[in-house]
Structures are given as structure tokens and as C-alpha cells.
């Protein structure tokens, strides 16, 4: 009997894991607060140009993102085989009439989604994520289309210039 008692005393005391979940929950809330859901992955190469005078984009809920750059995969429609326009998860077709229809459709969709949430459709900011190597002729096509469709609030996405960042 004595032998048994001795072994019982040697046992390592159990570690209380109750507070572990609290710590992890704290992590969880931290990440939930500082992040937002990713709506669509970019299928085009996108390296933003550098700028020092950037401003943070406000009201993230009413932002529509348009990517523009070299396609990452084959089979993605690209203007002159160089530049694709990505509207959410779709790609604009390349013939200029089709492209106009696609961009217009995209803007109308965004506006409708905004109106459903009782927000002003004119307050949508169009975040243009354009690769720094894209030639302006393609950017101009996009700008022209946005302007024609009365989507005037735009934001050129940039990254922080390390040399002269604030």
C-alpha cells in the first residue's frame, strides 16, 4: 500500500488550461478588429507605385476595387496581351465595346449593392489598384469609362515611400 501512495505523490500537477482560451480569444478579437474580409484576390500582378502624400481610405464599406496589371495566369483576357482589368473577381473583356459594357455593369452592381444598404451610391470610392508599369493609355481608357458612368470619386492606390514617409 505504501508503494502506491508514494507514486501518487510523484505525479506532475495538472496545468490549468482554462485561461489559455481567454488568451486566444483575445488574439481572435484583435485580428477581427484590425482586419477586413478580403472580397477578391488579385489575379493580376500589382505593385503599387510609391507616394509620400497618401491618405488613408475612409469608409471601407463603400469602396469598389479595380485592379489593373499584367495577368498572373494564362487565359485571362488582356488588352494587347499586356494589361487585364479585374472588376471584383471578374475580368473585363478586351474588345472596347464589350469592355465598356463590363465596366458599366460593374459600376451599376456596386451602386445597387450600396443602395440596398441604404447608403449613398455617389459616395462610393473607386480604389484603382494599378501596377506601376502599366502604360497611361490603358489607365486613360479606364478613367474615361468611370467618368462616363459618373463614378468620379477615385483613389490611386499607392504604397508608403520609405525614404520620405511621414
Amino acid at each position: 500500500m505504501a508503494r502506491f501512495r508514494k507514486e501518487g505523490k510523484k505525479e506532475v500537477p495538472e496545468i490549468n488550461t482554462g485561461s489559455m482560451s481567454d488568451i486566444i480569444f483575445m488574439f481572435l478579437f484583435f485580428f477581427m478588429v484590425i482586419t477586413t474580409m478580403r472580397e477578391s484576390d488579385s489575379q493580376v500582378k500589382f505593385t503599387p507605385p510609391k507616394a509620400s502624400e497618401y491618405q488613408k481610405l475612409e469608409k471601407k464599406s463603400s469602396v469598389a476595387t479595380i485592379y489593373m496589371g499584367e495577368p498572373k495566369k494564362q487565359g485571362i483576357p488582356a488588352i494587347d496581351e499586356v494589361v487585364s482589368i479585374q472588376l471584383n473577381d471578374k475580368f473585363a473583356r478586351t474588345r472596347s465595346e464589350d469592355m465598356k459594357v463590363d465596366i458599366k455593369g460593374f459600376i451599376e452592381e456596386e451602386r445597387a449593392a450600396c443602395a440596398e444598404k441604404d447608403k449613398d451610391p455617389n459616395a462610393i470610392t473607386y480604389s484603382l489598384k494599378i501596377d506601376s508599369d502599366v502604360k497611361m493609355r490603358y489607365v486613360n481608357i479606364l478613367k474615361q469609362e468611370l467618368r462616363q458612368n459618373n463614378a468620379l470619386k477615385i483613389n490611386y492606390s499607392t504604397k508608403k515611400d520609405k525614404k520620405e514617409g511621414k
Binding site: F31, T35, T36, K60, L152, K160
Partner: peptide, 29 residues
Amino acid sequence: ADISFLLLTFFLLTSSITNEQGIPRLLPK
């Protein structure tokens, strides 16, 4: 703890730290 770990990894994967910044401009009407 396991459950909250799962939730944590789920949010880590589906979200991105937004660095939405840029130069705002208004296009002409």
C-alpha cells in the same frame, strides 16, 4: 482553446491587414 484556435486560424486566412491608402482625386463631370 482548440475551438478558439480554429476560429483564429480561420480569420487569419480569410482576412488581410488593409493597407488601403492612396491619392484621392475627383474626376471631372
